[in-house]
Amino acid sequence: MRYLLMVKAGKHAEAGVMPSRELVDAMSEYNERLAQAGVLLAAEGLQPSASGIRIAYPMPGDHPVVTVGPFLEDKKLVAGYTLIDVGSEEEAVEWALRMPDPSGYGEGEIELRQLKSK
């Protein structure tokens, strides 16, 4: 089963603050471990929502409304994700717990979501 490990954006990530060198190192070490265990499918970081675009359909059947970022509710935005292929939910959680605190400043948050099976 596939799990998506979403890293939530904090204020710092949204402001475009670069992660510390220690964190970048710890993150690449973590990705290496995932790869070596054969569970890593993909890992990407997203640019801050300042360069994001939203397309909404407030009226069914009508034209979409396009808004450009930044978006305000920064706590809930996604800053990056890692896609893994594991045998159980527990295994996914164990891997997520091994990820370094992705943000620091008390803002770090990872959300795990199972992918609908293909």
């Binding site: 640019q47 929502s49 939203r54 397309i55 009226m59």
Partner: peptide, 29 residues
């Protein structure tokens, strides 16, 4: 993204588009 069908209907459909970081964006080291 505009070609994607309204993903939910009921006026609730919303798609957010975000660019993925390339290694270059993350650091200059």
């Amino acid at each position: 993204a505009l070609r994607m069908p309204d993903p939910h209907g009921f006026g609730e459909g919303q798609i957010e588009l975000r660019q993925v970081f390339e290694a270059m964006d993350l650091t200059q080291d």
